[in-house]
Design a protein around this nucleic acid. Structure first.
Lengths: 164, 164
DNA sequence: GCTAACCCGACCCCGGTGGTAGGATTTAGA
DNA sequence: TCTAAATCCTACCACCGGGGTCGGGTTAGC
């Protein structure tokens, strides 16, 4: 498995936020219920997104999270990077300096670490795939936008009970 | 980390075999010594390559491994796939059927699992990167071909010292 | 028949993943 | 002002797969 569940959960969370009204807080609990994910764990996941500046939050009653930018301006490489840390195909990519990458293995040996050529290409392939996908695409793909998650909205106007 | 050390070690092993004379067995011990890798673990790694038909082996004294095809005919996606199993970016890709992929999560829900669009693109990006790299490229990149590993060679015909 | 090699299965340690628990703090609304 | 809903934060924990080790069996050249 290449990505951990943090990436899966975080991307789902971002998609859910993208389906909501912009600049309008959605509570984590609503998302956790809708996606069937553990709330306490989602808190850790969304904290990464917040620290990366991808979502904003409001505390207190009727608080929640919303996208800090429109979904079409969010490339998925930012999201995945925030969730997973650096996207490193192999152990010796733990530096983030694009240049001067020294393979952890036998750096003094005469010949270069040939595997690094391969992993570099793989990394580039992954990042390109992520960069060329916007959150808006995923939101569109996820189906027509619904407002069933606007729990805090309903709580604010407690009379409206949805059908079903 | 995306790939495990099995991939790293296995690719290095393939590169070493590519640096040797074709159709000529190189012992695992020679490779383990040259790369500083544990022999017993390399045995497990090379077993995957053998089962995938990428290398052939000869048992007994002066036995060893060699590439079953010329290095320029070996695309790295075969190698990595043999070493890592299927290249799955996420848990719900554990089936290998290219079509009819059902996300393990809420398959009955009306809307599709939007994250799958993203992971599918990532997977395609990885596989494309691997497919367009041949073992021969890595062998060339690893520096001029040397014969320092041909231990069994020297043992068999101890007179011929190569012109270093 | 001795030795070098491949082959195979069982075992084992450890760190990270995937959570849970429990609380502190902030804010809207009754 | 009190309460409930929500974000925030830190500590803790169980399990499992990665990354090996070990011991032996089998094959083949000398």
């Amino acid at each position: 498995m290449i990505f951990s569940s943090k990436a899966e959960y975080g991307v789902r969370l971002m998609i859910e936020l993208g389906r909501q009204e912009p600049d309008h807080p959605t509570s984590l609990k609503a998302i956790a219920d809708a996606e069937g994910l553990p709330l306490a764990y989602l808190e850790q996941v969304v904290a990464r997104l917040r620290r990366a500046g991808l979502v904003m939050s409001a505390r207190g009653a009727h608080g929640g999270y919303w996208l800090s930018r429109p979904a079409q301006d969010i490339a998925m490489d930012e999201v995945v990077q925030a969730l997973e840390g650096s996207i490193a195909p192999m152990e010796c990519f733990v530096h983030d300096h694009t240049e001067r990458v020294l393979c952890s293995h036998e750096p003094d040996s005469g010949r270069a670490c040939a595997t690094k050529l391969l992993w570099t290409r793989v990394q580039a392939g992954i990042i390109r795939s992520l960069q060329t996908t916007t959150l808006a695409e995923l939101v569109d793909f996820s189906g027509p936008r619904d407002t069933t998650l606007a729990v805090s909205e309903r709580a604010r106007a407690p009379v409206t009970a949805p059908a079903s």
